Simulated scan of single mutants.
Amino acid sequence: MFKDRQQAGRLLAEKLSGFAAANPVVYALPRGGLPIAEEIARRLNAPLDLILVRKLGAPGHEELAMGALVDGAAPTTILHDDVIAELAVPESYIEHSKAAALREIERRRKLYMKDRPAISPQGRTVIIADDGLATGATMEAAVAAMRKAKAGRIVVAVPVAPDDTVQALRHKADDVIVLQKPNPFWSVGSWYESFPQLADEDVIATLERTYAAQAAP
C-alpha cells in the first residue's frame, strides 16, 4: 500500500530513472495522475504536460467505462464493444457522452493550460502517468492519441493496476511500468492510505509550480 500519490510517484520515478537519457516528455492524466507525473518529471528532469482524456461512463454505471475520449484536431475515441453490447447502449447515448466529454475537456484546457502551447510528442519518448488503472480505458485512449501524434516510444507508468489490464496495455504501448499488480484488485484507491479527490485548483497549482521550476535558471 502506498502512503499517498507523491510517495507512489517517487517510487515509480526510481523505476523510470533509466529513461532520463532519452530526453522524455512526461504526460499526466488529470487529475489524479498529475502528482505522480510531477515526481517523475522532477526525477528525470523532463518537461511535464497533460493529456486531456475523459472516461465515457456506461448508462446507470458511471464508474464502468464503456470507452474513453482524448481531445485533438480529430478526437481519439476508444470504445469497449463488450460493455456496450452487454448493456445494449444505444448509439445516441454514446454520441451524447462523447459530446459531454469534449465540453469538459475544453473547459479543463482553458482552465489548466491557459495560453500555454502543448508539447509535441512527435518523435520523442513519452511517459504517460496516472495514479492507477482499473479497466485501462482512459490510458488506452491516451496511448492511441500518442500513436496518432507520432510519438517515438510510448511508456505507460502507474503505481498499481490489475494484471489483465497491464497485459492488454502491453499490446498497445512500447513499455508498461507498474509497481504493484494485486489480486484481487478492488479499486485504485484501495491501495493508498491517503487518496483524496483532487480539484481543479490542485491541478493549476501543480502546473504553475512545475512551470516555475522549469523556467528557473
Rank of each mutant, 00 (worst) to 15 (best):
A20M: 08
G67P: 03
T125Y: 03
R5E: 05
D49Y: 07
R209T: 13
V156M: 02
S190T: 15
A46Q: 02
D71I: 00
L64S: 09
M1P: 01
L48P: 01
A99C: 04
A65C: 02
G67C: 13
D131G: 09
V83N: 10
A41I: 03
R43Q: 10
P159G: 06
E208Q: 14
D175P: 03
T206V: 14
A8G: 08
L64A: 05
A149M: 12
F185E: 03
D71M: 12
S190M: 12
F195D: 11
V156I: 14
G132L: 05
V178L: 04
R170P: 05
M113E: 15
L179N: 02
E208K: 09
V155F: 01
Q214T: 11
I128Y: 02
R10Y: 00
G152C: 06
K114Y: 00
K150H: 14
A199Y: 09
T135Q: 08
L16C: 04
A173C: 02
G18Q: 03
Q214M: 15
L179F: 10
R31F: 04
L87S: 05
K172W: 02
E208C: 07
S190W: 09
A118K: 14
W191S: 13
P162F: 10
F185R: 10
A101Q: 03
A134L: 05
L29N: 06
L11K: 07
N183D: 15
A73M: 12
P117S: 14
D200I: 14
A141R: 08
I40Y: 00
E95P: 08
L29E: 11
T125Q: 05
A216V: 06
A118G: 15
E208A: 04
P217M: 04
A21Y: 02
D130S: 06
E106Q: 15
G72N: 09
V70N: 06
N183E: 15
H80L: 13
A68T: 00
S190P: 00
Q7L: 01
A22V: 01
L69S: 13
G123K: 13
